[in-house]
């Protein structure tokens, strides 16, 4: 995915081929739901670059378009207009299956409601993205166990989601997001359903992961969560109104 080094000095930063420098590069993206008079403009032209290793918080009130932004960033949804370059490739040009591949390998999702597969053990949940990435069984087991170990839940590997606390479930979800070794960790209100203690745990984990060089994008409406990030983006009415480095 890296562009040959010789090209870097001669091509201006805005040109697409150098976009590989930025892990995420969205350009003038709009998203409209519905048609005609009932059309809802969730995003009205958003441009954003996130470099590898950044820790970004996206804030905004409900209905501001931050969730839509997150869905587009995670390749769960496609923009109505505009371009999305992820790690040097244009997402719009990818087939459905290739998009699935991108989701599986480059992005790790963490959701507000954990979204673990019910009736399936913690270990099996963590293994799932590895299964979809066509890894061998033994390799999957090894990596999933390591990821669970990383979030401190090795002893809960055989527990099902309904046998785990909210904090534990979210840690399993983080382990699952990390299992494939994605470049970006995309978290949508990750602490929304957690108590203060679990929130601290999860955010501590994000800090740790970011300090190890992982790109983290957190969508939240809580200021103390946003304060942990090093860059704050505020979205309002489908536009970015604040984009500042906070730390």
């Amino acid at each position: 995915m890296r562009v040959p080094a010789v090209q870097v000095p001669v091509v201006p930063v805005v040109v697409a081929s150098v976009a590989a420098d930025a892990l995420i590069d969205i350009r003038d993206v709009t998203k409209t739901y519905g048609h005609g008079e009932t059309a809802v403009h969730a995003l009205r032209g958003v441009s954003l670059r996130v470099d590898a290793g950044e820790y970004v918080a996206v804030m905004g009130s409900s209905g501001s378009g931050k969730s839509t932004l997150m869905n587009i960033l995670g390749c769960l949804d496609v923009p109505s207009r505009g371009e999305y370059w992820l790690d040097g490739s244009n997402v719009a040009g990818l087939s459905e299956d290739q998009q699935a591949l991108v989701r599986g390998r480059k992005i790790g999702f963490i959701f507000q409601s954990f979204n673990l597969i019910p009736r399936t053990s913690a270990l099996a949940n963590v293994e799932l993205p590895l299964t979809y990435a066509h890894l061998r069984r033994a390799e999957r087991r090894k990596r999933a166990s390591r990821a669970l170990d990383l979030v401190g839940l090795s002893d809960r590997a055989d527990h099902r989601p309904n046998q785990l606390s909210g904090g534990q479930q979210q840690r399993v979800a983080i382990a699952r997001a990390l299992a494939t070794g994605p470049r970006i960790l995309l978290a949508d209100e990750p602490t929304g359903n957690l108590d203060a203690h679990s929130t601290d745990e999860v955010l501590g984990m994000f800090d740790q992961l970011n300090s190890e060089g992982r790109t983290v994008v957190v969508i939240t409406h809580e200021h103390d969560v946003a304060a942990r990030a090093r860059r704050l983006i505020q979205v309002s009415d489908g536009r970015i109104i604040v984009d500042e480095v906070t730390r």
């Binding site: 995670g74 299956d97 699935a100 989701r103 599986g104 390998r105 597969i117 799932l128 993205p129 979809y132």
Partner: peptide, 12 residues
């Protein structure tokens, strides 16, 4: 669940 699986990289 289908949505989760797709988010985790499950193909069609």
């Amino acid at each position: 669940e289908i949505g989760i699986r797709k988010a985790l990289g499950a193909r069609r």
